[in-house]
Amino acid sequence: MKSLLAKKPRVATPARPGPVASFVRFVIFGGGVGVLSGFAVPLLAVTMPWALSNAVVTVASTLLCTELHARFTFAKGRGAGWREHWQSAGSATTAYLATGVAVHVLHLVQPSPGMLTEQIVYLGASGLAGAGRFLVLRLYVFAGRRGRISRPSAQQGTVTVPVLAAAPV
């Protein structure tokens, strides 16, 4: 009886959300930050070149979104590590290029577009880039390392060997 009382309670680890739940969370967190970014870029562009404004907002929003996605969208149960931040930065760089090219093309076609037109183009490009980012983050960055097996080693005690498993879609 005493040994039953002495055991520590096990804390359940959160289950990884399915693709639909992850996508809904991704849209809420990433889309929410994206909309705020959409307002921040033209406001900053009043004081600096548009491309620099887009870069500053992209860096700040990527850091924030990576943390939100690690904690809530993909339910890692912790904040993002350096690996996730760097990999997320790679996908964000692609998104930055997509939004930058879209707005640059807009300015070539229409030299003085209004803020509303600029917003529509920027948010449209951000939405398309965001869908690609979701796939990269879900299938690669936050996929995790499932299926680890511990095997004893004569020299170091225990070695953890990763076993490859396909990520659910």
Rank of each mutant, 00 (worst) to 15 (best):
L68G: 00
L108Q: 14
L108W: 14
G100Y: 09
T73W: 13
L97D: 00
F72N: 06
A89F: 15
W82F: 15
V103F: 07
G79W: 11
V103D: 04
T73K: 07
K76N: 10
T99L: 00
R71I: 00
E84G: 08
A92N: 03
G81M: 04
H85G: 02
H69R: 04
W86D: 02
T94I: 15
T99I: 05
A95N: 02
A70E: 04
H69M: 08
L106R: 05
G79Y: 07
A95K: 02
H107L: 14
L68T: 00
G100P: 01
A95T: 04
L108F: 10
H104I: 01
G81T: 09
G77A: 13
A80R: 00
T93W: 09
A75F: 02
W82N: 12
A80C: 01
H107F: 15
V109K: 01
A92M: 03
A98H: 02
T94E: 04
K76S: 14
G81V: 06
F72T: 06
L108T: 12
Q87S: 11
V101M: 04
V101E: 03
V101L: 09
S91V: 13
W86E: 03
A75G: 06
Y96S: 00
E84I: 08
Y96R: 01
V101D: 02
T94H: 05
G79H: 12
H85T: 05
S91I: 11
V109D: 11
S91W: 00
W86I: 15
G100C: 03
T93Q: 07
A102D: 03
L97R: 05
K76P: 05
T94D: 00
A80Y: 01
S88W: 02
A75M: 06
R78M: 12
R78T: 13
A92P: 07
A98W: 02
F72H: 12
G79R: 12
A98T: 05
A80K: 01
T99M: 10
A70H: 06
L68Q: 02
A89K: 11
A70T: 02
K76T: 12
L68H: 00
R83G: 09
L106A: 08
F74S: 05
T94R: 08
F74N: 05
W86A: 14
G81R: 07
A70K: 02
H85S: 04
H104V: 03
F72Q: 08
G90P: 14
V101T: 07
A95G: 12
W82D: 10
A80I: 02
A75N: 10
L108R: 13
S91C: 12
Y96G: 00
G90E: 13
G79A: 11
A70D: 04
F74Q: 08
V105H: 10
F74W: 11
L106I: 10
W82T: 14
A89T: 14
L97G: 08
H69Q: 10
G90Q: 14
